[in-house]
């Protein structure tokens, strides 16, 4: 299990491509509303596995080596600043989603963060807001759809972006198309935000390289590992973790029939 797995597989774009649109259309053609927590709905497994192989090759020949160069050539202080800068530019989009979700706390926090980090943090290169206790409250349109009651849908692995679901794929497209920063900035400047974001992701790929390599290259079935990790993390992000989601390996027969041998270990021992 990766530490901070989400930094690479959070559905935030590593690269943007029109290919995604094609995949998005096929993914959303047949929304499945029967999915429930704890289960995996993967009707496109065959295509997904093909995409997974593509993503793995892409990582191997391009993303991993590039991130390694980036991570070693750029001083960590500068890498941090690029990360902060990119985060700061995603705040207006986060705030827009908070409005749509009716999340006043998140909205207030992000407006304050944006104000503080853009001014005191010199255009977002530093993150004084976090030091004041105003940590980032990250969100996206996928979460807005979740708040609105849209079902998770099918698991999808997107080319370039990695693990997602049909709901999150729609979210990704909407977030990109309606990003206030991209829409409001004039043409050359708007690419800065995309560029900073790609650089920040490369930095993450480098920082968490041990974990990501372990999933992509050391796991027996990297496809199912990535799928499991993504869904666990995403469902947690959206719903938090209620105690009903925990099963008891020591023998709660209702939640984990596998471990009936453990139904009462003490009885066994006292016999």
């Amino acid at each position: 299990m990766p530490l901070s797995f989400k930094h690479t597989f959070s559905g935030k774009p590593v690269l943007w491509s029109a290919v995604v649109c094609a995949s998005f259309l096929s993914a959303c053609a047949a929304p499945d509303t029967t999915v429930s927590r704890g289960t995996i709905n993967d009707p496109y497994e065959e295509q997904n596995r093909g995409t997974h192989e593509f993503n793995r090759s892409l990582d191997k020949v391009l993303v991993r080596p590039t991130s390694s160069t980036y991570g070693t050539a750029i001083p960590t202080g500068l890498q941090d600043s690029i990360g902060h800068f990119s985060d700061n530019l995603s705040l207006p989009g986060d705030a827009a989603n908070h409005i749509l979700q009716g999340n006043g706390e998140g909205l207030g926090r992000n407006i304050l963060r944006f104000a503080i980090n853009t001014t005191l943090g010199i255009g977002g290169l530093f993150d004084p807001a976090s030091q004041m206790g105003l940590e980032r409250s990250k969100t996206d349109f996928g979460e807005t759809l979740y708040v609105w009651g849209v079902e998770e849908g099918a698991y999808v692995e997107l080319p370039f972006f990695g693990p997602s679901t049909s709901r999150d794929t729609v979210g990704l497209v909407v977030d990109y198309s309606l990003d206030p920063v991209r829409l409001l900035l004039p043409t050359p400047e708007r690419y800065i935000s995309t560029l900073a974001m790609v650089a920040a992701r490369l930095g993450d790929r480098h920082t968490y390289t041990a974990t990501i390599d372990s999933v992509l290259y050391e796991s027996v079935d990297s496809y199912t590992q990535a799928r499991s990790l993504y869904l666990q993390n995403r469902r947690y992000e959206l719903g938090g973790r209620s105690q009903d989601d925990y099963d008891d390996p020591y023998g709660d027969a209702d939640s984990d029939p596998y471990d009936s041998a453990y139904s009462d270990p003490y009885e066994d021992l006292n016999e």
């Binding site: 299990m1 990766p2 530490l3 901070s4 797995f5 989400k6 796991s219 027996v220 079935d221 199912t224 590992q225 499991s228 990790l229 666990q232 993390n233 995403r234 469902r235 947690y236 992000e237 973790r241 390996p249 020591y250 453990y262 270990p265 003490y266």
Partner: peptide, 30 residues
Amino acid sequence: SDRSGRDLFFDMIIEGISLRLSEKEEIGAM
């Protein structure tokens, strides 16, 4: 849990990702 006879942890869940469930998937695949 203390059901092993000692107070021990049987799962570590990082940002929603359970070590035990992830390994269930991995060992199953192996």
